[in-house]
Every structure is written in structure tokens, then in C-alpha cells.
Design a binder for these strands. Structure first.
Lengths: 237, 237
DNA sequence: TCCTGCATTTTGATGAGTCAAAGTGCGTAG
DNA sequence: CTACGCACTTTGACTCATCAAAATGCAGGA
């Protein structure tokens, strides 16, 4: 594979260009770290599963990343991004999410299919092209799934959101984010009309049934299992 | 490098997915074949130079391509695309040129810089995205340099064009194509206002001086050496 | 014909990324 | 306190694409 024309590591003076594989590991590490919302270490097993490789592969890649100063690695415990690694991961995530929005808004693809497309494109887009896309979309702050787009510079501001599992009942709320990239699930969300922006009310939550009942825009009533409900995040209208 | 999500070789039933390196070799082979406008073999030296690798690398890659049935290889003479290889090469070229036009028309990049960008993107674009771009651009037939965009299906129709070196004199002609991807040259063409679409007249051609004099849109007069003049192609107004 | 020059081919090595399978270490159940 | 199981690490091998440098072969000049 020949050299790739992408983001240099401005902060690591003359580091070798990150390959798309390196970018993918960093991105995944970032996402895992977020999800395990502590500043804890991501175990190799989790990372390997997320990357679709055997554990041994993750171990050796992470050791290489540690040598490049992109992660800190604690044998038999896990890894976590360094300042520099996180910066690069956010760069990749920014490309990914801007591309997703671009594919939906400009090219008219369905939100259920853009994740896979963006996974490829995020490694091929130059800073210049990215800037044009960002401008064309008028500097958006969230992608089609409601995931925040990291800004070109500066930290992301994380507003804590509530899922359908822990939001207030009997109050109109707006769908802000759907945390799942599975096309099948996203298409289901489409069919129910639960896409970001939709206003709904949670009617009831049955702990033992592990289900919630919601009313969408005052019309249809729908039951969701807690697995699905936990993926839908809402904010006050 | 992980698997890539792109054009399968529909015509070669269950062939392995072409890597972006393979795509690049095929594309280059196609371009070299065109340029040496006979159906002759492309020597390894030429191919290696075009690909920016040492000759030995080209030899071994071409042997691999021959094993996949994408080229026919004549040791110590050269290689040429098979039917299947040409089909794939045209696919790649279509992606490349549609992306170039997209970058200029939709994202507003300068035509002098899109070639390099497209070289990266052409390997990351899925059929679906390509179709959307094609539709958005209203099924264009040429890219920003005037190079023909291979159609999704069917052969390219090759209209023979004249360069400033062999066109008629004293007759208004329209610039149709500029065959050079060097940003510096393209920017020069920009400055002179010789971009595709411009109407000009060739005033004189001095064989011994290896130069031609042209008048652009009835105003400015300009002298071009034959190297440059040979890169500008025109068609009757 | 013989020889030389040069393009081409071969050979051996390298780096990235991966897997299979064997080895290791640590928490916890007994 | 010991041992088991499971997560993690190591090892060896493989593929792809590449280079450096040595070997080869052909075309043309003497």
C-alpha cells in the first residue's frame, strides 16, 4: 500500500503518516473509551472484537501504537489514548461524521447506509476537501444519527443526554440521537418515525417487562424493549 | 490493509477484490496503452516509471495481474490489458474523472488540484455513491480537463481531436481538453485563460521555432512552445 | 560473429497487518 | 492455599507491495 495523503500528526513533529489501520484503531479506542465512560483502560478483547480481528492482533497493534506515543498500554489490563492519540482519533471521527452528514444531505443517501460508506471515505478525504464539505453543510455540530461532530479545533462539549430509559415521563421530548449503526435497526427507527427531531412522550416504563411505551407526536403508540429504548436519546423540546 | 468495499469484478465471477494498488496498475496500464495509441505492449520500464516504483516491482505486480487474468504478459516485451482488465481500468477511470468533476463543480476546488485528490478518493467510492454523484452532475461526459468519462456501461466513443500543433489556422476553435495533470501547468493555463470552453485562433505555427502564436477570444495574443501547444486540444466552434 | 549496453527479471529482504495456536498470568471458586 | 478458567500475550507463518542489487538476455555496433 502506498503512502496516504491525509492528516499529518501536527502535534507529533515528524511522526510517520498514520495508516488507515492506525486511524481505525484510534477511532475505535476512542469510542470504546467513551462508552466505558470512565477514563479506564480498554481491554484488548473489547478492542479486538470491535476491530474484527483476533485478540493477538490487537495486542501487537496496540504495542506499536504505544511505541508511536499514541496510546499508553498496560499489559494484561488494556490501553488508552494519549493526548496525541485522542487528537488524531477526534480528527478521524470528525471526518467520519462530516462525511456521513454529507452523504445524507448532499448526495441523498439513507442514514442507515452512510456509516459503512463513511468508514471507507474517512481515510481518503484531505483537509481541503473536508473544509469544503464542512462549509457546504454550514459547520454542522451533529451527524445524521445525532452524534456530535468534533470541531476542527477545540474540545467537544459533552451535554449529558437521557435515553428513553432514564428520561422524564409524560413530557414532550425531542429525539436527539440514535446510538447504533446497524442498518437494520436504523431502518426500523425510520419505519417507526423515531428519527432525530421527532417529538415523543414516554407514557410508561415497566421495570419488570423491560419495556417502555411511547407516543409519537401525539399519534401512534409504540412499545420498545429496553435494549432498543436505551439507544434512543432525547432532549427537552 | 483490510478488505476494501468497492467494485467487484462482475465479469470474473469470484475473483478476489482488487486492491487499490491493483486498480492503480490497471488504470496506469490503460493510460499508457492509450498514449502509445497502438494496441502494443506497455514495457515494464514505462509502467514502473508511471507508477513511481522500481522496475522489478512492476514486473512482479504484472505477473500477479497476469495470474488473475487481468493482463497478458510477454516477458521482456511488456503487458497489455485483457478484456476484463480493461473493463476494470475503465471503472476506475470513471470513478476518478467523476470525482474530479464533482470536486470542481460541487465542492469548488480548483481544477489544478483535483487530480491528486481524486487519486485517493477513486478507491474509496462505492457504486452507490458514484451513481449519486453521476446523477447530481447530470451524467457528464467529460471531466474538468476535458478528459472523457467512461460510461457506466458501453464503450467510450473516441472522437479524434486536434492539438494546437495540428489544427487549422486562422479559424475560431474551442479548447476541448488539456492533457496534463501538473498543477503548475494547469495554473498557467488558468492564468492565460486557456481553460476548456475558451475560443481561440491559431495565428501561426513556426516549425523551426517550435512555437505557435494564438489569439484568445480576439483579444490577447500568446506564444506557446510545442510542448505546451501539444497538450491543448481544440474542436470546431 | 562476438561483445557490450541496457532494459528486464530474479533474488533476498523488509514492513505492515493479519491469523492460528501455543504459552502465560491472574482472579476467584473451592 | 491451590487450581481452574479465561483473558491476554507470544510465536511462527503468511500475504501484499515494495526496494536493492545481482543475474540475465536481447539488439545493435564493431
Amino acid at each position: 500500500m502506498r503512502a496516504e495523503a491525509r492528516t499529518p500528526l501536527d502535534f507529533l513533529p515528524d511522526a510517520p503518516m498514520a495508516t488507515s489501520t492506525v486511524e481505525d484503531y484510534l477511532k475505535q479506542l476512542y469510542l470504546e473509551q467513551q462508552q466505558a465512560h470512565a477514563a479506564s483502560l480498554v481491554p484488548m478483547g473489547k478492542l479486538a472484537a470491535a476491530m474484527g480481528v483476533v485478540p493477538g492482533t490487537a495486542t501487537s497493534m496496540v504495542k506499536a501504537l504505544a511505541d508511536s506515543g499514541l496510546v499508553t498500554y498496560e499489559p494484561r489490563s488494556g490501553a488508552k489514548l494519549t493526548k496525541g492519540g485522542e487528537q488524531l482519533a477526534l480528527h478521524v471521527l470528525r471526518r467520519h461524521r462530516l462525511v456521513e452528514l454529507f452523504l445524507v444531505k448532499i448526495l441523498g443517501l439513507d442514514w442507515s447506509e452512510v456509516h459503512a460508506e463513511a468508514d471507507e471515505l474517512e481515510h481518503a478525504i484531505s483537509e481541503k476537501v473536508l473544509d469544503r464539505i464542512d462549509a457546504l453543510l454550514e459547520h454542522p455540530s451533529v451527524d445524521p444519527h445525532g452524534d456530535p461532530i468534533p470541531p476542527a479545533k477545540g474540545k467537544m462539549v459533552g451535554t449529558r443526554q437521557h435515553s428513553l430509559l432514564d428520561c422524564v415521563l409524560h413530557t414532550p421530548l425531542r429525539v436527539a440521537r440514535v446510538i447504533d449503526q446497524e442498518p437494520a435497526f436504523l431502518q426500523f427507527v425510520n419505519r417507526c418515525g423515531l428519527t432525530p427531531g421527532t417529538v415523543l412522550t414516554v407514557k410508561s416504563r415497566e421495570e419488570q417487562a423491560a419495556a417502555v411505551s411511547i407516543t409519537i407526536a401525539g399519534k401512534a403508540t409504540l412499545a420498545l424493549g429496553s435494549a432498543a429504548a436505551g439507544k434512543i436519546f432525547v432532549e427537552p423540546v
